[in-house]
Design a protein around this nucleic acid. Structure first.
Lengths: 211, 211, 211, 211
DNA sequence: AATGAATGAGAATTCATTCAT
DNA sequence: TATGAATGAATTCTCATTCAT
């Protein structure tokens, strides 16, 4: 086929590459394998991406874009911190279930220890989230809807930690197994987890005076 | 040099291998590289470890052993959930700062998507923690020291999630940068983080009636 | 050179590989050596053959094909057992002289002690010959042209034994030297050997009553 | 154990090495494996044999010695060509059945194509047999007990060819299978084979006038 | 004199990347 | 412009051989 690749094809290459990278790991995924599954030649991949690394980056950027879009929608849809939190938890569950490969890509970069790239990524990815959540908590604090002694940045950090782990728990094999070990595998596990997480977030484990 | 390897050298091989594995990832780390840095021949590594995988496992086992020892001490030293939590948080900080490569090993296996090995690892590693924490929360609940509507397993899960992320935040490059983005880099950041995390754990972000 | 390999080159690879395998033995022959002598890269050999074993098999199959073609022609060209025998003897001589490496390939597999492969090979190769010769002898017996107390299978076996050794005697270094030791090196040795072998076959060494 | 090796141990090393060499092939047999099975250290083998090749040679020489002893006894025990032939056939069967590894060693050198060694071996081994058999046939011819037109050297060659193949047919896996293909596997196969071979030798396949 | 652990060269195999078609 | 075969560097693993004990 000597026809220029359509946008669709290009997108499919990234989708399949993402699947391969996150299934086999960036090292073991092969350009040839990705090419074959995408129905294109190896050469054409090199036409669009300088090397394997560049293809990986492209997949990553794409995955993170999808993830961010999701998060943005969530935070913009709700007002109260509590409502936002619930939405984000539910999104974490559903997004990770539907697009596990994309979350695994995210997980993958936390690994890629070499090269200054990691810092760059962290900045690109987390800045948005960090600021978004920190602002949420700041606002809530000002409004008097959360504790006065809570440091917005720290709380945002803990909250994001929980969300990240939730994402991983629904997409990465290891974390999936770990979730099973902690919480079993019952029908209603996921919904219960949402409820419990909200409880945990809102009130911690300490006994309420009023209870 | 045809001198028999000392125990020290053997241990150093594992330490250096751990460093390599966690710095470059299990795939990119090479036996030859590990051998060179350890000042031994390739052959000697194969004398002690059947293959690269076996060496990796040995490093992993060693790292997890060190980590578990730490945790066990922590939980056995204290009575109250609160005290145990504080101890675990402080240990996470200090252990990860002192032995970042060992935590990165742990992080590495959460990646290694292939092979049923992942499940096996998860079971080997998490079972202990899961049971330990779940029991802590169960006991606390029975004693009436935590909320009645808290599900011990779920709370143990969230708690462990926070601890894991704390570990990573002090040892993996990506997470380190992420922590910086969220919480900056100030002198007293780490101590503050302990305090805030305890606050977050105990009381969540919700406003107390009595405050 | 990134030019596609011609059929000729492909064939040459097999020829050179056959040469290497039969000269150094299947173990000592190296893919790199074969590649270099063939003027191609190592990779291209792995493109066409899964591994060293597969390359060896391909050489073997090719050699046996050539050999079988020869034998088939011989047996189909003649009617009487005697004529067939003479033809086969002459073919053994000429084929082994012209394609020593191919006979050595055959000899090589009689060594390859490991793996059930040996049985498989024996079956693939010898079945044809065994049946062909046994039938020849059976027919001859029925026609009354050979002794009544001759067991066709056994006689076919002895006959084939002599033919195999003849093949080896003209292609494998050891057997070549052995032939020299037994029969010298004279100009007319090979023709005499044909005559003597026919004599041996037909009448054994025993004195005829009529002589 | 710091005691000098006994002659017995030395002999056992050769026996075990012979077994290994002929079972796995000279390449795949390992010095370490031979040492372990012999209950000695690798080092001690190198004390007695310069290298693997030298050990192989020693095994070979020893095996050939055993074989020759056998043959010598046979030829010296009988007078008539026919009786010697029968004895040699029976010895081939029994020796090969009892000491397959030693015959396989013999077979192995017919392979070892490299190095002038092959010629040297052929000379060392075959000269004896060649002369012995050729003399037998010469004498028989003079005595008038075999055909006048038989060339002793050629007949000795064919006879030895049949004997060698018989040896192989009872010791080398490939030839063993081949024998099965030709002659089946029945209880009385081996005895019948002796009878048939004698028939074949003495009278060939041609019809006798007097029959 | 025997031991057996350490050495390191060497071979098979893989796959990112190139480039003639 | 797309193709996909060829390249060859790189990596794992083996094992003959050495030599300190």
């Amino acid at each position: 086929m000597l026809k220029k690749l359509t946008q669709e094809q290009l997108d499919q290459i990234l989708e399949i590459a993402t699947e391969e990278f996150s299934a086999k790991g960036p090292e073991k995924a092969t350009i040839m394998g990705i090419a074959r599954k995408s129905g294109v030649s190896v050469g054409v991949i090199y036409k669009y991406y300088a090397d394997k690394e560049a293809l990986f980056q492209a997949c990553l950027t794409r995955s993170l874009g999808m993830l961010k879009d999701c998060l943005n929608q969530a935070t913009s849809r709700h007002e109260s911190l509590e409502a936002v939190a619930e939405e984000l938890i539910r999104i974490a569950q559903s997004f990770a279930k539907e697009h596990p490969a994309h979350i695994r890509m995210y997980h993958a970069i936390t690994m890629d220890a070499e090269g200054g790239r990691v810092e760059e990524y962290a900045r690109a990815i987390e800045s948005v989230t960090a600021q978004l959540y920190t602002e949420c908590f700041s606002k809530a604090k000002e409004e008097g809807s959360i504790r006065k002694d809570a440091e917005p940045a720290a709380f945002a950090f803990f909250f994001d930690n929980l969300l990240m782990m939730l994402h991983f728990s629904y997409s990465c094999e290891y974390y999936r197994e770990r979730l099973r070990i902690f919480c079993g595998d019952s029908e209603d596990r996921d919904e219960k987890l949402v409820q419990q997480m909200l409880l945990f977030l809102k009130a911690g484990f300490m006994l309420r005076d009023t209870q």
